[in-house]
Design a protein around this nucleic acid. Structure first.
Lengths: 242, 242
DNA sequence: AGTTGTTGACTGACCAGTCAATCTATTCGG
DNA sequence: CCGAATAGATTGACTGGTCAGTCAACAACT
């Protein structure tokens, strides 16, 4: 429930370089906030355009216009229109993957681990709805084209979450009857559907709702996965074990 | 849990007719299984092609080829490529909507109501994975383009499910702290994510797994929504009230 | 004098949608 | 009962527009 590290949108960080430019090593002279950094400008513009019109419906010239640069410059920094989207996805997903790994390695109760993951994703949406919309709509859920390309990376997230669930089962917090893989999908599915609800404007999305949603996710999913009696007579849920 | 009415894929049924053909009333002489019914042929071919290549990546000629008809015939029955997909979605979604309405109107315990809905969707996938893939990937989750067009119909499903949850809350089976709208999204999200898992081949999809998944969905979601003590001391879950 | 950044007009491919022609079935006058 | 007439079904070559990606030139910086 604490602050949770929401990601900064601006800094360059990784980002897979395309073909073409050999990039002699050093980046811009000083990484200060002053540099125009057209590459970033294009990436950020692309997020807005993709979110507004969708990847397929928008033209490369729309991105260039939005970024205020010439058409050709897009191809100076990226090998193709696809690569722009790929870059956006990889950049962001890698951060999430790292967070999940970090969370996983810490000795926390499951609720807090899953809570941190849910919080991260929801905070990411809160911080940059357009970017999350693009990643979910255009990549994560695009079974053909992009989804296929990144399926390996996407799967990794599910597997890491699955591992967390498995551990919780081994420790007796979660019931073992529900396969960890299924549970991981369920957990992630609930979160993604909430984002979808916000994206489609099917759910109210004040800051308060977003915060509350974190709790709802955990309460709903963990509630169903925990070993809270039912079959055995004791009232002792994990609550007491913890 | 019972058989649940899985939909037949073949018969024409409703289906919004396009512009053009005024249809002087009677359809084909006898509605027997003999009639070629090119319209249906095209629709079924489109499902296969859309599932395989995706809506955007495929050409109208691919559909015509797959159906074994001439290019132009597609435009005899449908006003546009879009209309083919629209028709597929509406046809199927309407059936689901009707099922939800039926289920809702019957006096059943929540678990069985939601169970019937989950079963229907999962059976639909089991019966025609391609069609479900197309509907989910190309429409339900396409925030721009198609998703936008059908958002009203999609929303209706969420609202109906939400109403079921609300009723369960009023009856004391579900806890009231989790807003019905959220719960409905969570429920649907879990199911859709499972389908996604199967579509992307992230989850094993034997017939046995699909059947088991129905139980997992209910167990997970309802487990988290039910008023199973926790805050009050009694072990009495809804199980006893029922 | 070279290297990297930036520009935008241009091209080549691709494809949705059109349409005139052909085919098939049903109707109807004689 | 037959052949003409009408209407729908079916065909596939063609068109028009769109757009991703190229490239030759120019600018800025070192």
């Amino acid at each position: 429930m604490s602050a949770s590290r929401a990601p900064a949108g601006g800094a360059s960080a990784g980002g897979a370089r395309a073909a073409g430019a050999s990039g002699s090593g050093a980046g811009p002279p000083a990484g200060g906030p002053r540099a125009p950094d057209k590459r970033r400008l294009i990436l950020d513009a692309a997020v807005r355009v993709f979110a507004r019109q969708g990847f397929h419906a928008c033209r490369v010239s729309d991105i260039a216009d939005e970024a205020g640069v010439a058409y050709g410059l897009v191809y100076h920094y990226f090998a193709s229109k696809d690569e722009v989207l790929d870059t956006l996805f990889i950049e962001r997903w890698e951060v999430m993957l790292q967070l999940i790994r970090d969370v996983d390695s810490e000795p926390l109760p499951v609720r807090e681990k899953l809570g941190a993951i849910a919080a991260f994703i929801i905070d990411s949406y809160s911080h940059d709805p357009d970017l999350m919309k693009v990643i979910i709509v255009e990549v994560t859920r695009a079974a053909n084209s992009f989804g296929d390309t990144h399926i390996g990376t996407i799967r990794e997230a599910y597997e890491l979450i699955g591992a967390i669930v498995e551990k919780a089962q081994a420790d007796g917090y979660f019931k073992p009857e529900i396969e960890a893989r299924f549970a991981a999908m369920a957990f992630y599915g609930v979160i993604e559907q909430l984002l979808t609800g916000w994206i489609f404007d099917l759910l109210p999305q004040g800051e308060e709702e977003l915060q509350r949603a974190k709790w709802v996710v955990i309460e709903t999913v963990c509630g169903g996965l925990e070993t809270n009696a039912v079959s055995d007579g004791t009232t002792a849920g994990n609550r007491l074990l913890r």
